[in-house]
Design a protein around this nucleic acid. Structure first.
Length: 570
RNA sequence: GCGCCAGUAGCUCAGUGGAUAGAGCGCUACCCUGCGGAGGUAGAGGUCAGAGGUUCGAAUCCUCUCUGGCGUACCA
């Protein structure tokens, strides 16, 4: 059994083997077994794992569930990992981890350290997570923060699950939004020099005034042209560059860093060695496959022949490619250009009308779309008390991500977003967010980590060390419960990496912290000075310090995966 | 109209077809005065929107209805 198999898979394999042994022994008929044979029971009284296999097989085996349970259990003797199985009506097989196994895992966790709970699910595969990717025409708002928290954590979880992961921001620096942005910027820029020019419709926000001021400060009047004439060359590029810089700073402050900022414009550029652009190649491929049609002066992807409800314009009648064309070229580049095995696009739900189109386009050009997953997160509704705040970059008022981070800090903001399933619409009460920042559950987790660190510190100053501690001395219920909780982490990581739902990690973190707090308080409640981590008994102290050390590793890992700090003190 | 996502405790939300539906906040009553109280235990609080269906078993899967958000561009 390899190091990177989850415990769940190990135990599940034992059940599958037992069932097969029962079939070979003739106590079960020769029937097909499902892949998933065990689950985590809700009630811990029913064991660490349980199998409902007997209930599910009853029909095809034509046997009563309890008889099947007995047939399987007979081949599931107590062993290295689990104790003897217990059969429970109407047909469950309940399994508990053996105490010595649980104890031994403490040593293993310490040995693995920061690699604890990694899995090999995605070993040898390259994954890309593209997220936020807001147009560089204004500052990020609170809703973008949700995408950032989700995408970043998902990328971390995929990494822990064995994938080689790249985080990417797709910079939309081509297209009409950029034109409007540049026009507005130039208008604001001219105003800086006292010209009476009107602001085009598009981006009325105050930040454009600041951006123009920055431009004037750094570049002087070199973009100024005669009234009514277009600005000097380079304004567009510099404006976008400044905006992207601002976005990058915002995300860094939020705790999110990218491997690559991908320029949309490069899709249209031939490579240095003379190879055609991604756009040209993708269009040629579509044409070759007979999926393009010239109609009404425009070039269409005949997607209705491919299961879509309508065709989509790829090249406008004025010759400019659409955003959709960029997206086809972009995904061509992701798969055929860069060879990712798994690509996840994290989009706000307001883009959901675009999903099936992109999947069809990708399938047409790449030949398959099963490796592309578009993860939609529902929009964040902002409230101040009872008043709903509209989020609109083009409408003017926005609550920026910077403001949120300023008020509640990056950790609390991230955790707030991570607690909710992407598919869940969430209400964000700005007043409450500030008021509750001290009650945010993230502090509950971080506090647990700080106390673990504190215990190790204290022990160290008193001359105690975890080294050489005998984990066999860990027999208190709260000690073993804490270890059991830690052992779930690899399963949670795999769940996040397969369902693309990071909220499981956030909830697990809370539960792990609860296990520690219960463990810690159990000693205190009993009022016996011998019932602490640091006791008069050096052997027991060392054993418990090992547990504390392992717990700190596990909790630190969870916080790290969520992109949050694991404080030594608070 | 059509399509996508949702509807679970007073509020904000978890819940991988399994056993008695959970957490945080708020409310009530306790514990501990600590190796850090940003803690622990217990309690009250539920028609899992509604109605059918599938299944040994449904908050979970299917159908319909109601409610909310979003989309339905030669914008991105």
């Amino acid at each position: 059994m390899t190091e990177n198999t989850t415990l769940r898979d190990r135990v599940g394999a034992l059940v599958t083997e037992a069932a097969q042994a029962a079939i070979e022994a003739g106590s079960l008929p020769d029937i097909a077994l499902p892949d998933e044979v065990i689950e985590r029971p809700r009630d811990p009284a029913n064991g660490d794992y349980a199998s409902s296999l007997p209930l599910r097989l009853a029909r095809s085996a034509m046997m009563p569930p309890l008889a099947i349970a007995e047939a399987i259990a007979a081949h599931l003797p107590a062993g290295e990992v689990i104790d003897a199985p217990r059969i429970a009506p109407p047909g469950f097989i309940n399994l508990s981890l053996a105490e010595h196994f649980v104890q031994g895992e403490v040593d293993r966790i310490i040995e693995q350290g920061a690699a604890f709970a990694n899995s090999s699910l995605g070993a040898g595969k390259r994954a890309q997570v593209e997220f936020v990717s807001a147009n560089p025409t204004g500052p990020l708002h609170v809703g973008n923060g949700r995408g950032a928290a989700i995408g970043d954590t998902l990328a971390s979880a995929l990494g822990a699950a064995g994938y080689e992961v790249e985080r990417e921001y797709y910079v939309n620096d081509a297209g009409t939004q950029t034109d409007v942005f540049t026009e507005t910027l130039y208008a604001r820029y001219q105003q800086q020099f006292g010209r009476d020019v009107s602001i085009p419709e598009g981006y009325p926000g105050e930040y454009m005034v600041d951006l123009a001021a920055t431009l004037q400060e750094r570049e002087g009047d070199r973009f100024l042209a005669a009234p009514g004439e277009p600005p000097a060359a380079g304004l567009r590029e510099l404006g976008i560059e400044l905006m992207v810089e601002q976005i990058r700073r915002t995300l860094t402050a939020f705790g999110t860093n990218y491997d690559r900022w991908f320029s949309e414009r490069t899709l249209y550029e031939d490579s240095a060695d003379g190879a055609s652009s991604a756009y040209d190649t993708a269009i040629a491929s579509l044409r070759e496959n007979g999926h393009l049609a010239q109609r009404e002066g425009a070039l269409w992807l005949t997607s209705s022949e491919l299961g879509e409800d309508k065709d989509n314009v790829v090249v406008r009648s004025d010759g400019r490619p659409t955003y959709f064309a960029s997206d086809i070229a972009y995904h061509y580049d992701k798969f055929l250009g860069r060879g990712f095995d798994l690509v996840i696009d994290v989009w706000g739900a307001d883009h959901h009308g675009h999903v099936s189109r992109v999947l069809v386009g990708t399938e047409t050009v790449v030949g398959r779309a099963d490796a592309l997953h578009v993860l939609l997160y529902q929009l964040v509704t902002l409230k101040r008390g009872d008043e709903i705040v509209r989020l609109s970059k083009r409408g003017g008022e926005i609550i920026t991500l910077d403001e949120l981070v300023e008020e509640v800090g990056p950790d609390a903001a991230r955790f707030f977003f991570l607690l909710r399933a992407p598919s869940s619409q969430m209400e964000f009460d700005l007043d409450l967010a500030v008021k509750q920042s001290n009650e945010n559950p993230v502090f509950y987790i971080q506090y647990a980590h700080a106390r673990l660190a504190s215990i190790l510190d204290r022990a160290s100053t008193e001359g105690h060390t975890p080294d050489g501690g005998d984990v066999g001395l860990l027999t208190q219920p709260h000690e073993l419960a804490l270890v059991r909780e830690m052992l779930r982490l690899s399963e949670v990581i795999e769940m996040v990496a397969t369902t693309y739902e990071p909220q499981h990690l956030a909830h697990y973190g809370t539960e792990l912290a609860t296990s520690f707090h219960a463990f810690n308080d159990a000693f205190r409640q009993q009022g016996d000075p011998g019932l602490k981590v640091i006791t008069d008994d050096p052997a027991l102290t060392a054993a418990r310090l090992r547990l504390v050390q392992a717990a700190k590793i596990a909790l630190g890992r969870v916080l790290d995966l969520m992109g949050m700090t694991a404080p030594e003190r608070m």
